[in-house]
Nucleic acid binder design. Structure first.
Lengths: 341, 341
DNA sequence: CTGAAAGCGCTTACAG
DNA sequence: CTGAAAGCGCTTACAG
């Protein structure tokens, strides 16, 4: 409980040098003699001195802080993203200020304002949207923003997504090839571009084969809603023989309802496919056929876009689209021939 | 790309008042007249001014930043903790700097040093240990540290855990009452106090009934290791009829191996119980009998301990132990009588 | 209630 | 290479 922070002045006094000299020793690339370095470092170690990053930020105008806004943390995809993003940023000498957004709610703005108050060098919005008013503020303040896994009309920001449209289409191809006749869809939150693109691709794929959606429910990217939607969808006489659930997270809940509550066998009675390829999907309990979102690449592109804007002053927003791939597992009946694995 | 941050001086000039007046308007509780407030606020809004939190921190010595070190993000328990902790702290006007620790690795120290460099007001270590050297530094700097879900010999820090010993014992009682004869244990990382306490409680519970551990494997809190351990454990002639896996996260992997690879039925052939009661445990696919760690309470106590030390200058470390409860589901054979639910 | 001034702990031209 | 000095954007006694 000392609270007496050791400052560069303390070190300077102990080493018998100027305060500026101490500062230089801790500034990579500054010109200091070896003997100066030795003396200062000795004193610094003795006193346990470390530069105050906040003070440094004040003068350099760089906080090396990145604001990360994330929602849906119960969806395994996001903790994974958070971990990778944070690790990658740490390696580059940046640190992450995390903020939780209420899922699909609009008050991201107050949270973003708080982030800006901390003078962050950049912002990543993971599956979260931003008002145009705040967008302007960020722009005015010169704070780069990268949208992760979400596209937005506003083209003043960089965006990193996977190719959700072609992913949806691949799933349609696969289900049709598998001989399914009554193909349903359970949507995510309709405000999300990922939801819209996946659905559009899926419908386009069905149309290619002269098919149409047999039924449609809304899951809002929430497991409880998805479960309800599935229950309702399988209530009538004519039920689907395949369901594409807009992400894996909801697909697990749907599988549980179909097997647990309705006693259906997967893929015997009904095929289920998802989107994301989170870790759980590979587990035997779910063994879910899905489309991967390559998280490593997506994170790498996000960090790269951010760094380009922060450190190289790049101003043209990047729009990165990563190709995912169909991951065939056991939750959906496969095409008869050796097609697709 | 303006980069011209609006400062209090800009606002002062525009409003025709002193810079200190502007500062007071943005300092809750400072004495300013209504007319002054109005004038300043008008100018501030016009210019889009917001106080620079970093500059404020420099002078107040309070950053309102909390460093949170977390590992095991693939274990559903931790994203949940992160979300709750961050939300609770946000509500109190604090913000969270997250750092990923490599699981069960020792280099937490460099990460912690970086946290300290940001002049955080406090630190939460979630299931992560700290060297005594760094502990001293924190102490010297007067930075409160709270250990979450991990006890440590060092009693200079506050600790929040659930009662792992009695949880382990409850599980032993339950399995013995269920008539199991060959009861095994798959351990977590042996360096963790939670692992040790759960095992000690479990063994004590078995001993109470004159039983002993039939077999023991090590999962290190990792699903891959746990799966291997289970495979090995069920390799011989005589196999367990019940397994306590040290946390739910590993238990899922064990269940998958037992059902998927070994074709065993749960709980028909073997009972499985876990620890934590994460969300997945309640899902029909796993339906896992387990002991709950009440995360809401644990987070609340952690934040409360932190706040007491930061804001009230409390110096005596708190040791909080929360009672969990046995959650009986379908993954383990139940006692014959109506005992325990 | 208000303003002038000092100072938080640094970095960075500017001289020497 | 080194030191003295200014200044980053604030808050907070100190006078008035």
């Amino acid at each position: 409980m000392a609270r007496d922070n050791v400052t560069s002045l303390d070190v300077a006094r102990m080493a018998g040098v100027s305060q500026s000299a101490v500062s230089r020793v801790f500034t990579p690339g500054a010109s200091v003699s070896q003997s100066m370095t030795d003396r200062v470092l000795a004193a610094a170690t003795e006193l346990g001195y470390r530069p105050n990053v906040l003070a440094r930020s004040m003068i350099t105008g760089k906080s090396r802080l990145i604001g990360l806004v994330v929602a849906y943390l119960d969806n395994q995809f996001y903790p994974e993203i958070l971990e990778k993003m944070s690790t990658s940023l740490q390696q580059r000498g940046y640190h992450v200020l995390v903020f939780m957004a209420q899922q699909t709610s609009g008050n991201i703005d107050s949270v973003l304002q708080e982030i800006l108050d901390y003078q962050v060098d950049g912002i990543v919005l993971a599956s979260v949207a931003m008002s145009s008013q705040l967008a302007e503020r960020c722009d005015a303040a010169g704070i780069p923003v990268v949208l992760f896994n979400r596209a937005q009309n506003d083209d003043s920001f960089s965006t990193v997504t996977s190719d959700n449209f072609s992913g949806g289409r691949a799933l349609a191809d696969f289900l049709v090839a598998g001989g399914h006749k009554r193909i349903a869809y359970i949507a995510g939150w309709e405000g999300a571009s990922t939801q819209r693109d996946r659905e559009a691709g899926f419908r386009a794929g069905l149309a290619d084969h002269g098919c149409e959606l047999f039924a449609r429910g809304i899951g809002d990217f929430r497991t409880d809603r998805a479960a309800e939607a599935a229950l309702e969808m399988f209530n009538g006489e004519q039920v689907p023989d395949a369901v594409f659930v807009a992400n894996d997270h909801m697909a697990f809940a749907v599988m549980d309802v179909l097997r647990g509550k309705l006693g259906l066998s997967i893929p015997g009675d009904v095929s289920v496919v998802g989107y994301d390829d989170v870790q759980l999907s590979a587990w035997p309990s779910f063994d879910l056929t899905t489309v991967s979102q390559p998280s490593d690449e997506m994170v790498a592109e996000t960090v790269s876009a951010l760094m380009a804007q922060i450190e190289e002053g790049e101003t043209v927003p990047r729009r990165v689209t990563i190709q995912g791939g169909l991951v065939v597992r056991g939750s959906a009946r496969r095409p008869a021939t050796g097609k697709k694995e």
